[in-house]
Structures are given as C-alpha cells and as structure tokens.
Design a protein around this nucleic acid. Structure first.
Lengths: 232, 232
DNA sequence: TCAAAAGTGTTGACGGTACACCCATGT
DNA sequence: ACATGGGTGTACCGTCAACACTTTTGA
C-alpha cells in the first residue's frame, strides 16, 4: 500500500472541558498536574490519540478515565493547531466540552487523575492555550444552551423547574423571571411530571420532573428559545 | 527539550467545502482528482498540514491555492478521525467550510487544481468520508445563516434584496415571502443603500445595497432571525 | 401567623405572517 | 398597454416580558 511521502506526522492530543453544576454555580473539573510538563500547574483533562483508536473512542476513553461514566454528553469545539502551542513538541489538540451530573461521577477516578471541581468564576490560570479553550467552550455552551435542550445533562434525572432555572442563571450569569421561565420550559413539553416532589425543601416542595427522552431526541435540533433575547 | 515518548504521530490533513452561489443555486467547488489515491474520482479540496505551519495558516494557504483569494470567510466544522477513513494511511482531517463570491475567484487557480463548480443538488459521489463532510457542512451553513449574517459572504459587494432572497431560498431550498423578507432584512440595519440600481434588470431596477461593515462586525454574534421558524 | 419559595394568571407591546396595492421598466 | 418584477402598507395573531396574586411549608 502506497504511503504519503515527505509529510510530517504530528502528535495529536485531546483536551476536554468538563462542566458540572452544584445547584449554585457552574464548575470545571480541572487537573492539578503531578506530571511533566508544567508539573504543579492546572490544566484541562487530556490525553493522546492512540494509533488504533477512532477520535470519538479516544474522547470516551478520556472521559471514562476521569469520571468512571459512559455515555457522557460531549461536543467537539475546535481543533487547536498553533505550531508552538505545546512547548515540548508540536501537538495538535482536538478540544471538546462535556456536560455531566456532578453527583453521578466516580470520585475515585477523579482522585486518581488528581482532578478537582473548581468554580468557573474562580478558575486558575491554566497551561498552554487551555485558558482560551475554556473561554470558547463557555461561549459554545451559552450559545447551544440558549437554543437546544442540553442543560438537562448537567442535572440529576429528576429535577425541579426552580433548579433548572438556577442552572440557566448560572450559565448566563444573570437573573431570569421565575414565572416566564416556568411557562417557557413547560411549553416545550419536554418535561414529564414524576408525581413526586422535592422533599428537601423547607418551604413549598417543588414538583420533580424528568426529561421526556423520546421528545428530547426528536426535538433536539428544533430551536427552543430557552433564554430571552435580552440575555442572549 | 523533553519529548512525549511512545506515542504515534499521525498525518493531519485539511479538507474544505467551498460554497458558492451563482444567482440561482448553491454550488460546491470540487476537485476532479488527477492524482492518487482515488485518481479520477471527485473529492473536496484538501492538503496536508505542514510541520511549521499553524492550522489556520494552512487553511488560508489551501484556500488561496484554490481560489487566488485572501481573507476568505471560513469556519471549522469538525475534525474527522476514524482510524480507517483514509485507506492509504491513517490521516486525521480537520474539516471546514468556506463561503466565496463565485465571480471573484481566480479561474486559473481553480483550473490548476482541476476544480469545478458543481451544483449542490447534482453533487457526485465523493471519496472517503467527504460525502458526510458535505452533509454536515450544509447543515452548519443552514444553521449559522439562519441566525447570523454570513449569507453576504456569498454575494458580490453590491447586491439587491431580491438577490439576497434568492440566496436564502437556495440555502434552505424553500420559498420565502418577498415582502416579509425585505422588511426583515432591512430591520437589521445591516444594509446601506448605495444609491445605485441594478442596471441588468429588464423590469424595475432593484436598489443595490452593500453591507455596513461596522455594524456587521458589531452585530455578528447577535442573533438575527433571517429565516422563519417554519423553514428552520 | 409569618416568611420564603413555588405555582398560576393577566395584560400590553412587539414582531411575524399573510395578505393587497402601487411603481418602474422594456417590449 | 401590458407583463414582470420591485417596493411599501396593513391587519391579524401569537409570543414574550412585566407584572400580581395564591398556595404550600416549616418555624
């Protein structure tokens, strides 16, 4: 079999922005590096693409190693390819973001990677071009979540509308009208009343909903206006 | 300087979907391959990433070689990384789409690459995963053009509203109401009346507009609803 | 019984859609 | 004058934002 001669092969990495939500704030799962290069500094979770591995499989592998979860929602953002972005050796980075339920992931997996949940607002300086990656990822999350029902990926299976609102308020760092938000969300018909209520509340217990998975699949690419123009 | 050992370097290519508009239909600039592999078949324009070249520079180089144009509008779509997507040797492909004014490009450059404008509706089978790339590119174009003012990139500097409408109708393969379209476009305040008219018309001569570049830059990331919900 | 949070209602403004009508141009 | 295409107007309807009121709960 013929080869492509005279072309340099390049190292290919993947880097992942993992978003979580603790009920109040958006968080990032970041690595305190106990390995070189840039040992001791903060970075995104990443890894190299193996020679016998599809790009998508590599993404799933990296996310599994970090969280112990399979079937995580993720989206490719962009491939970063400046010649000098990694000082050790030229490395292309295929960058993506993932959304997980912060309470569902495996703590031991995270510990093994030396990963910590950091409030997005207090994020430390990251190595290489990882700061830019986070900026772009957040932009993408905001863009996508305004139009498509991806917010649910950050919540537990059963959740209340006020919790969902808190999530959107955290994503867009702004306040939303309770009554309009509720109506807007319910009008999508994506939520099913579980019949249960949030027993943790000390005041009126909110209704617990879950996603209508069928409708979610079918309507995913339809536009919903989850966020008002003024916020967008 | 230390290296990352034991990791395979991979060939990295770029592939580009070039969209054009001839006044009636959306067209693709495709390559009739006179080189191996898959000589004689149709493919996207592409090239390899050089070892001393930023990813973005490579994109511009490839577009320049094909069209003789600089500063073309392009957007990264996705990086394709199935192990066997290129039968010759494993090759990652960073895929992007570009929008050009079909009349502005350099014919000799295209000829040198053996490139031809093909009506999107009559597109031939392409090699490798290039068919999928075109599908995704079209989806992205439709998505983006519904919300952001990128359609103008496909038109000459001066254009009429009916021309713009024809363009949107071609992108979405559907008919739009003339009167509502005009009002919607003008309400964005992105168009400047040049004072000139389209002298080619045999009936009433339409007003030639040009983009208000300042507003275009500032409002680019604001959402405009260029296309009605029913079409989206 | 009071405070805090959740659920439901109402209204006015705005934007979109579906229409009709008039104007300019060349044959 | 007439056919063709371009420009402007209007009326209805639905959606969204802004607002008030009621209900539930635990202290």
């Amino acid at each position: 079999m013929a080869n492509y001669p005279h072309i340099n092969r390049i190292l290919v990495a993947l880097d992942c922005i993992v978003f979580g939500f603790d009920g109040e704030d958006i968080k990032l799962l970041l690595i305190k590096r106990n390995f070189d290069p840039e040992k001791g500094k903060w970075s995104l979770m990443g890894g190299f693409l193996e020679s016998d591995e599809d790009l998508e499989d590599a993404t799933n592998r990296i996310l599994y190693d970090l969280t112990g979860l399979k079937g995580i929602y993720f989206e490719e953002i962009q491939t970063f390819g400046k010649v000098n972005r990694d000082p050790v050796e030229r490395t292309l980075s295929v960058c993506f973001f993932a959304l997980i339920n912060i309470h569902a992931h495996d703590q031991d997996s995270a510990k093994a990677q030396n990963a910590f949940w950091i409030n997005l607002k207090n994020r430390p300086e990251l190595i290489f071009d990882h700061n830019e990656m986070v900026d772009i990822a957040l932009e993408r999350l905001r863009y996508k979540a305004a139009l498509h029902p991806i917010g649910f990926e950050l919540l537990p299976e059963k959740f209340t509308i006020p919790q969902l609102q808190k999530l959107y308020e955290a994503i867009y760092d702004s306040l939303l009208d309770r009554r309009n938000f509720s109506r807007k969300i319910l009008s999508t018909k994506l939520l099913l009343d579980t019949g249960e209520k949030n027993e943790n509340s000390t005041t009126k217990k909110a209704i617990l909903y879950k996603l209508d998975k069928d409708k979610y699949q079918k309507q995913f690419n339809a536009f919903h206006y989850f966020i008002s123009d003024s916020v967008r």
